[in-house]
C-alpha cells in the first residue's frame, strides 16, 4: 500500500495553516520566525510530494535551494532581532514603532 501525494499535501496544508496562524497570533519576533520556518517546511513537503508523483527530480532540487534561502534568511533575521534587542530590550514586534511618521 502506497500513501498518495494528496495525503502528504494535506499534512503540508495543515502545517502551513498552523504556521500562518502562529505568525498572526504571536507577538514575539522569535516565535514568528519559527512559524515562518514551519510554513517553509510545509511548502518543501508539497514540492517533494509533487516531485515524486511526477517522477521529476526538480522538486527535490528546488527544496535544496529553499533550504539554503531559509538558512540565509534565519541568519539575517536573527541578527536583526539581536540588534533590535540591544537597542530596545524587547522582542515584541508591537513595540517597534520607530518608523512611524
Amino acid at each position: 500500500m502506497i500513501v498518495g501525494a494528496e495525503w502528504y499535501m494535506t499534512v503540508a496544508a495543515a502545517l502551513f495553516l498552523i504556521g500562518a496562524f502562529g505568525l498572526l497570533l504571536r507577538r514575539n519576533a522569535l516565535i514568528m520566525f519559527m512559524c515562518i520556518e514551519l510554513m517553509l517546511n510545509a511548502v518543501n513537503l508539497t514540492l517533494i510530494a509533487a516531485g515524486r508523483a511526477l517522477n521529476d527530480l526538480g522538486g527535490q532540487v528546488a527544496v535544496f535551494f529553499i533550504l539554503v534561502v531559509a538558512a540565509a534568511e534565519v541568519v539575517v533575521g536573527l541578527a536583526i532581532i539581536v540588534a533590535i534587542f540591544r537597542r530596545r530590550t524587547t522582542a515584541s514586534v508591537d513595540e517597534l514603532s520607530e518608523l512611524r511618521g
Binding site: Y8, N41, R52, V63, F64
Partner: peptide
C-alpha cells in the same frame, strides 16, 4: 516538526534532502 518532516522526506525516497 523538522525531524518528522525529515522522516516524511525519507518515506518519499528523498534521502539527500
Amino acid at each position: 516538526t523538522l525531524f518528522s518532516v525529515a522522516v516524511l522526506y525519507v518515506l518519499q525516497l528523498a534521502h539527500l534532502v
